[in-house]
Design a protein around this nucleic acid. Structure first.
Length: 109
DNA sequence: TAGTTGACGGCCG
DNA sequence: CCGGCCGCCAACT
């Protein structure tokens, strides 16, 4: 099923590869898929993740500041923070604590 | 068909 | 140090 939106599918695969308790930034993902600088594209992909199968842990994806910039897109504005804390990631005021330590480098293998 | 937006990032002033 | 602008790819209006 190759499609022109190949990058789109790569993003899903990448985000699904993020281990629990780890987070990643849009820029890192964009670069990992070969669209360095296309961080916005990653955001679009996440937008479609609502119908993706298997579901994409978009809650592990945050902006480069470690802020839950996309929490407003979740079923509930607190779902993202709850999910992260449930995996061991402390979140305060929409900001991931010790973000650098939880940061994980995406790999497509 | 063309213009604008979008869960961002980096560079320049 | 802080603010503003442009660039990335795709989708929506």
């Amino acid at each position: 099923m190759k499609k022109s939106s190949d990058a789109y599918e790569r993003i899903y695969a990448l985000v699904r590869n993020i281990p629990e308790g780890k987070v990643c930034t849009y820029g890192d993902i964009a670069e990992a898929i070969g669209s360095k600088g296309g961080a916005r594209l990653v955001g679009w992909a996440m937008n479609g993740s609502h119908n993706a199968n298997p579901p994409v842990p978009a809650h592990r994806v945050v902006n480069r500041l470690g802020q839950l910039s996309g929490k407003h897109h979740f079923p509930t504005p607190t779902a993202m923070q709850e999910l992260l804390e449930a995996e061991g990631v402390k979140v305060k005021d929409d900001q991931i604590l010790d973000f650098a330590s939880h940061r994980w480098k995406p790999t497509l293998s």
